[in-house]
Computed example of a mutant assay.
Amino acid sequence: MTGSTLRTSLFCDTALAARIERAEVDLISAVSRASASRCGVAGFVTPLASGVASFAGAGSPYTKVVGLGFGGVPTSAELAAIEEAYTAHGVPTSVELAHLGDPDLAAALSDRGYRLEGFENVLGLDLTVAHDLAVPEGIEVRRSGDDEFEPWLQVVVEASIHPDTQGVPWHDEFPAEAIEAAQRDSAAAGLTRYAAFLDGVLAGGAEFRTTEGIAQLAGAGTAPAHRRRGVQSAMLSARLADARAAGCDVAVIVTQPGSKSHQNAQRSGFDLLYTRATLVRQP
C-alpha cells in the first residue's frame, strides 16, 4: 500500500508455543509453591510430561494442569495418579490445553471423561519491532512497592470481580476472597507489580514476569470508575518498555475470546497466537 507501512504479524509455530507454555508452567509452579509456603496449604506441584499439575488450594486460579502437549502424552497411569490427587482434595481435574499441542492428548483426555468447558486466547507481540503506544495525559504508571500493596490489591480485586461483559465470559468465576489470595500468592512468588494513577488517584494495577525471553503480562485490572480512560494502555506501555529492557523478544497476554481486553490487545499490535481449551474431569 502506497504511503503506509505494513506490519508483519507474529507467527506462532509449535516451537514458540512450547516456549510460551514452558513459561506458563514456570509461573504456575512458582505461585503454587509460594501459596504453600505463605498459607501452609498441603498443595502439590507435580511434573507431568512437558507440563505440571498444580494444587494451590480449592478455588484457586492456580489449581490446574498446564503446559501439556509439547513433550509427549502422559500415560494412563500418570493421568490417573494426578486425577486421584485432585480428587483427594475434593476438586475436579482441570487441564488447560493449547491447540498447537499434540492432538493425541485431546483424544486421550476425552476418552477419560474430560469435558470441554471453555477457551482462552494467547496473544503475542514481537518485541524486536518498535511499537509506540501513546499514554494519555494525566496517567502515571510506576512499579509498585510493598508499602502500597494493600491499596493496590484492593483495586485489582475490585477490577476482577467487575469484569467487562463484552465477549465470552470466563468458564469459571472466582470470588473476591479467592482472587485476593491468588494475588497475595503471586506477590509472594516475586511477580513485579505496577500501579497506575489517574489524576493522582490509584486507578489500576498490573503484574509482569519474564521467563526464557517471554514477557508475561498478567493481572491487569482497572477499577470500574476509571475505565475507558487509557489506564490499561498506559500499564501495557510501561510493561512492554521493561520487557524490552530485560531482553525479551516476545510479550504474551491471555484474554477471553472477543473480550474488551482481547480487543485492546489487538489494537496495541498483539497477534492471536493460539487458543487454550479448558477440559475438566469431575471427581
Rank of each mutant, 00 (worst) to 15 (best):
G3K: 13
C12E: 02
D13E: 14
T14C: 09
L16S: 07
R22I: 10
A23K: 00
V25H: 02
D26A: 14
L27A: 12
L27G: 06
S29F: 04
S37K: 14
G40E: 09
V41K: 05
V45W: 03
V45S: 07
A49K: 00
K64E: 07
V65G: 00
G71M: 06
A77H: 12
L79W: 01
A80H: 13
A81T: 10
T87C: 15
T87K: 15
G90T: 09
G90S: 10
E96C: 00
L97V: 02
G101S: 05
D102R: 03
A106E: 07
L109W: 00
R112L: 06
G113L: 02
R115T: 08
E120Y: 07
T128A: 14
A130E: 13
L133M: 11
L133Y: 06
A134R: 15
P136M: 12
P136V: 13
E140Q: 15
R142D: 10
S144Q: 12
D147K: 10
P151A: 13
V155W: 04
S160A: 14
D164K: 08
T165E: 15
A176H: 12
R184T: 05
A187R: 14
A188I: 07
R193S: 09
L198F: 12
V201H: 15
E207M: 14
A220I: 06
G221Q: 01
A223T: 10
H226I: 08
R228A: 15
G230V: 01
D242K: 08
R244L: 10
V250P: 00
V252E: 01
T255L: 03
H262A: 11
N264P: 07
S268Y: 10
G269Y: 02
F270I: 05
T275Y: 03
R276A: 02
L279S: 00
V280N: 01
P283K: 05
